[in-house]
Design a protein around this nucleic acid. Sequence first.
DNA 1: GCATTCTGCAATTCGGGGGTTGCATGTTTG
DNA 2: CAAACATGCAACCCCCGAATTGCAGAATGC
Lengths: 96, 96
Amino acid sequence: MALADETRWDILSRLGEQPASASALARDLPISRQAIVKHLEVLREVGLVESHRRGREVVYEPLGHRLDEIARELERIGAEWTRQLGLVKRLAEGTT
Amino acid sequence: MALADETRWDILSRLGEQPASASALARDLPISRQAIVKHLEVLREVGLVESHRRGREVVYEPLGHRLDEIARELERIGAEWTRQLGLVKRLAEGTT
DNA sequence: GCATTCTGCAATTCGGGGGTTGCATGTTTG
DNA sequence: CAAACATGCAACCCCCGAATTGCAGAATGC
């Protein structure tokens, strides 16, 4: 999923501290600018990040809109894990 | 992770209803026997399944041992999601 | 004994995710 | 204007997980 990657969360939290461009992020992170751009594209698709051009650079910042949905989605995923857990427990009852 | 695959859970729950061999499972599932064997190997490594040979076939059945650990692991993962969710919320406060 | 049925092994394919590199284009700035 | 810096685009690479196919070797059942 879009939110499974650790680097993605890293980028996101950095943007939380301060909006930045892909190049700026690239200076701090151990991966190439292009790699970062791709992460940002994913984050933008998911609605967690917004970009606006300012002069020659494109600044990204985390976005509050749709946050509810994201949160709900995370909770849904959490619920899914719980369901699986239930399955495991049910299996446990009928086995060694 | 080992538990992320949907087919794996499917196999596991089928075994929960009744222990079976890889070939037997292959008759019911849309994938090849070999694919199933590989899933079963993974499940065995994780400790969710046990196999014992009976005649010419190898019967697999779900295993209760180590179930606690698995459950705890699932809960840990759930907690991780919760953490991420917290991050999202924190980000939300300081943004649009 | 012989066909059937199951397992085990190995090679291979396929697709996706994360990364990199090179180059062209656009914007600043001195 | 020209150098410097940022972006955009495209081609590639590598690795991994899931799955397939083909074939050899055992056990079973008539």
